[in-house]
């Protein structure tokens, strides 16, 4: 589904990604961990198509198509979804209008008829229940005045609305309380099937108890320096990153 080969990227003249290799197949869950500033969000943003980042080398294909040939909105409509680490507030753009536009843009892209107002509201109600998001939130502007946790929940709600084939969740667990973490994880698990895949960027083993990864990768200084099964996360939780840094440097 996603194949990244020897990917380099920089921002404001500074190299951040320095040779990423990663393959994600349908039905898989990958966790990416790593120290602060190692490039996890950069990788997520590069894949989603943020123009701040310049890809200097390497390739990435999504379902066989060159991802860098597509604008951000096309990538989304091809089925890529990024749950932002820091969702931005957009005053004046109502949640309803935003979601309706997004859903219908996806439908148009797939040559489906746009949803009627009634059908859209029905869909929204259904998905709201699934992620148990406060009903009032959808009456407001996108993320405006949302608490940290509400913003993260809202990301998963949007994911539920858009049903992507590849979801990259960038620290969706940070800022969630214990109940919310469980609800959000349940939501992600419910959306999971053999045709889609998930990349979880996280700092904590706890999330991985709920959403069990098939692979755990450690991103360090712009490269994936270690990949293993879910037991790696437990090891990291116990020992921190020092031993990995030593391995890399030594």
């Amino acid at each position: 589904m996603l194949v990244i080969k020897d990917l380099y990227a920089k921002v404001e003249g500074k190299d951040i990604l320095k040779g990423i290799n990663l393959t994600v197949n349908a039905g898989e869950v990958h966790a990416i961990m790593g120290p602060n500033g190692s490039g996890k969000s950069t990788l997520a943003n590069v894949l989603a198509g943020h123009t701040n980042f310049e890809v200097t080398h390497g390739t990435a294909t999504f379902n066989g198509k060159d991802i860098f040939e597509m604008s951000a909105d096309v990538r989304a409509k091809e089925g890529l979804f990024l749950s932002f680490q820091y969702p931005v507030e957009i005053p004046g753009v109502s949640m309803v209008n935003f979601l309706k536009t997004a859903v219908n843009e996806h439908r148009k892209y797939r040559n489906q008829k746009e949803l009627s107002a009634g059908d859209f509201l029905k869909l929204m109600r259904e998905k709201k229940e699934m992620v148990q998001i406060d009903s009032q939130l959808t009456n407001r502007s996108v993320n405006e005045g949302f608490s940290g946790g509400e913003k993260k929940k809202n990301e998963i709600f949007q994911m539920a609305m858009l049903e992507p084939t590849l979801a990259i969740l960038d620290e969706t667990d940070s800022g969630l309380d214990i109940d919310a973490l469980r609800i959000v994880s349940n939501g992600v698990n419910m959306l999971k099937n053999k045709n889609n895949a998930t990349i979880l960027v996280t700092h904590y083993q706890r999330l991985l108890d709920y959403i069990v990864p098939d692979f755990v990768h450690v991103l360090y200084e712009g490269r994936i320096v270690k990949s293993a099964g879910k037991e790696l996360a437990i090891e990291l939780e116990e020992k921190g990153y020092d031993w990995i840094k030593k391995e890399v440097e030594g």
């Binding site: 198509g49 931005v88 753009v93 892209y109």
Partner: peptide, 16 residues
């Protein structure tokens, strides 16, 4: 225009 807001909308499938 706020670039981050613009990217957010685009990342949800809305063209520029």
């Amino acid at each position: 225009i706020n670039d981050e807001a613009l990217f957010y909308l685009q990342a949800r499938g809305i063209n520029e």
